[in-house]
Structure formats: structure tokens, C-alpha cells
Design a binder for these strands. Structure first.
Lengths: 225, 225
DNA sequence: ACACAGAAACTTGTATACAAGTTATTTATG
DNA sequence: CATAAATAACTTGTATACAAGTTTCTGTGT
């Protein structure tokens, strides 16, 4: 588990939740790892209570499994969950981007333009971690343009499963293609071309689908079944 | 707040979560009501810890608002949330019922048949509460047939907002129409008629849309804005 | 060396005590 | 009586103590 600095504003609970979640997504807490409320509390410098609440929340998202009186474990990557997360992402992202075609204001377009421009910039400077963050931001901006902010928060939770696979795939998937997809999505929103948006979302997602088999072969110990 | 019996098997936390959630959905805890961890703990006969964890979870679903050091309140019905819940329900239910057309086994069909038969039975005996439960079960069975059980759990959370409106509408919406919709959905799944499924889901949802205006007029104090 | 019993060291679940902050009440003062 | 300050009674956030159960280690007897 890697250290993550506590922000002065956030509560102990929010800090614990953020720290544990980031460690799970980054795979610094590997799937299958046993975790202890006491151990993490000591590591983060807070008491068991906020750590416990954070773990409860993550167990509800099914990325931590709690066995009462026995211990808690970082869940193995479950192909069923990943598949359902992909289904949700495809279904919802398409519906939302179509809505964004109807509702996006010029201010929304401007924010998307700035985001994609930054992605294209960092693509040249090879800053993969920056692109990762901008990727999240890009999709959040689309949900915002479609007035579906609440759904984006919910989407984030179930996407944790998908995100772990994405972390593993960062080395193999070409950022060039991802940023190119985003550029084309933005242009299609500007043109209010829903059919093209739908096609782009499906193509975008298929990029991750292709290399899951490779990833699973490379890290079999991380997967369930 | 109405009393709900604690099941001998469930933990204090699960009991508190179930009791509070049912009271919110049934509107025995009215929107806007102030709630206290201590008060509920005393009422349920458990300590603050499990009650607090339950409230935290419900605040994440945005049906409870926590103001640190000030108090917690049952959230008013927020039209934005209700609209997003409706959007999610429509989008996801359509995608899932289409998937069910492809994947439903005979066993799935049999379970759906039994469920709808019971709905039609209780429709004649005027048992609205039974139909309410069977309605939930019906949609859960469809998600199960489409192998999307995880998404159904997630759907349930965001649907809390929608469910409160549904509780208010139970007196006005005709159960006859709901059960009729379900019967037609089942027949369309059997015929693998996706286009008809899509149309039926949209019509089904529109029934709730129609009377939201009436409900809002009848209970303005429950609504935000 | 092996088997078994028992204690010790863990786990999470729950209850309670305290901390920090807000609100309402009460009391003193003009 | 009105007003303001002090205070008491609340709230949630956090830490800690204890309860109940599981696992692991350890020592002892064979």
C-alpha cells in the first residue's frame, strides 16, 4: 500500500476512502490481498472507525469482500462484474452522449475543447498519467452537458472493476487511439450526429475488450475463475 | 417512524439499514424530517455505530442529507434526481429486456409466468401491497434472465428516489394497467420481439410520468424547489 | 516426530466515551 | 421588558474498549 497525503480539508473518513480506493485501482493493493482495519488505520494515522466506514462502502461496490470475524480481502477481478460494468458503460454512455448532442451549450463545448486539447498536448509529451485523469474528466464533462451528474457518480462506483483492468492495460493500449476517439466524439457532439456518437462509443469500448484476454493471460492470479 | 421487527439472522447494521430505508420509501419518515443517530439507535434498540453506518450508506444514495455537527435530514424529493432515475431506468431497462430476449431460458420464462400469474390473481383480490412486491420481483427476474444481477442491485439504489414518488402514486395509478404491461412484456420476451419490448418499457414508465404533476400538487411540502 | 489441546493473537461487530461544533435555552444585566 | 452573554443540550466525527468468533502458534504428552 502506497502512501497518499491527507488533504487538510477532508474528513478522516473521506481520506481513508480515497486512499484505499486509489490503492485498489492502482493495484498497489493487489487483488486477493488481505487487509485489516487496524493495520490500515495505523498506516493512515486515523482510528478504526473512519477506516471501517470506508471499507464498508467499498464492500458495497464489491471491490472488497468482508468475511465477519475472519478478515477482509481486495476482491479478485470478476469477469462477470467487468462484463456488467462494460454493458452499463456502453448502454449509459451512448444514451448520455446522445442527450449531450441535444443539450450541450457553447460553454460545455468549450470545456470539452480545452480538455481534448490538453489530451493532445500530453500525448506528445508522453504523460500517460495526465491523459488518464483527462480521460475521466472528458467523460464527466459529457455527463454534465447532458445534465446527468448524479448518474456519473453512480457510474464511477461500478466502474471500479473496469478501472482495475484499465490500469493493467495502460501499457498495452495506445493512448494515441484513445485521444483520437475523444477528438472524434467531440466533433460529433458539435455536429449533433448521434449515430456517429453511438458508433464511436462502441468502438472506444471495444479497444479495452480486445486486450482483456492478453491481460488475463499476463496476470492470472488477479482474476477469479 | 414505524417499528420494523429485527430478523434474528441479520446484523444490527443490516437491520438499521433495512428499517430506515423502508421508513423512507413508505414515507413514514417524511421528506424533510430531521433524524438523529441517537434517537434512531434508541428506537431500534441498537447502538449508534450500526445506525450511523446505515445512515452513511443512505446519504451516499442521496436520500439522507448529513450536515456535520448540525443534523441529518430525510432528503426532499428532488426532481433532478427523479428525472435522472427515470432516465437510468428507461435506458437500462430497455437494454436489459432486449438482452433478456436473447438469453432467457425456459426456467426464466417459467419464473416470469408464475410472477405475472400471481399479479393477475392479486389484482382481482385488490391486494395492492402484494402487487408492489411482485412488481419489484418481476423486474428483478428480467435482470436475472439477462445475467445482469449486479446492475439490478445498483439500479435499486438510485431508484429509491423514484420509489418514493411511486409510493405516493399508488393510490392514483391503476394497478390494472401495470399488471397488463407486465403481461405484455412477458409475451414479447417469449416472442423475442425487442422492438415491442422497448415500446412497452417506455409506455410503462410514462404512466408514472403522467401523475407526477398531480402528486407534486397534492404534496408540495415533500418536494425541493 | 507427531497429534492434540489450549492459549494467544488475530479478525470484524458493537457499544461507549470523548471531541468539536451548532443551536436553543437560560440567566444576568441594562 | 429587552438584549446579550453564558451555558446547557443537542448534533455528527473520531477514538477506544469490549464482545464474539476464527486462525495460528505453542507447548505437552505420546
Amino acid at each position: 500500500m502506497k502512501e497518499i497525503a491527507k488533504l487538510p480539508t477532508e474528513t478522516a473518513r473521506d481520506y481513508a476512502l480515497r486512499a484505499i480506493r486509489e490503492n485498489i485501482v492502482s493495484l498497489d493493493l493487489e487483488p486477493g490481498t488481505g487487509i485489516s482495519e487496524n493495520e490500515i488505520a495505523g498506516f493512515l494515522g486515523v482510528s478504526r472507525t473512519p477506516v471501517r466506514e470506508a471499507i464498508q462502502e467499498l464492500s458495497k461496490a464489491a471491490v472488497i469482500e468482508i468475511y465477519p470475524q475472519r478478515g477482509s480481502y481486495v476482491a479478485l477481478i470478476d469477469s462477470t462484474f467487468v462484463e456488467e460494468a462494460r454493458f452499463l458503460r456502453k448502454t449509459l454512455d451512448i444514451a448520455v452522449i446522445e442527450e449531450a448532442c441535444d443539450l450541450a451549450t457553447q460553454a460545455d463545448i468549450d470545456r470539452l475543447e480545452e480538455n481534448v486539447a490538453l489530451q493532445e498536448f500530453y500525448l506528445q509529451t508522453q504523460a500517460a498519467d495526465k491523459i488518464y485523469l483527462l480521460d475521466d474528466e472528458f467523460h464527466k464533462l459529457i455527463y454534465s452537458a447532458a445534465k446527468k451528474e448524479t448518474l456519473h457518480a453512480m457510474r464511477s462506483n461500478i466502474m471500479l472493476h473496469f478501472d482495475r483492468v484499465r490500469t493493467l492495460s495502460m501499457k498495452t493500449v495506445k493512448d494515441t487511439k484513445i485521444v483520437g476517439d475523444h477528438r472524434q466524439m467531440l466533433e460529433s457532439i458539435k455536429n449533433k450526429d448521434k449515430e456517429n456518437c453511438r458508433m464511436l462509443v462502441e468502438k472506444h469500448l471495444s479497444r479495452y475488450h480486445i486486450d482483456e484476454a492478453e491481460i488475463r493471460a499476463a496476470y492470472p492470479q488477479y482474476f477469479k475463475d
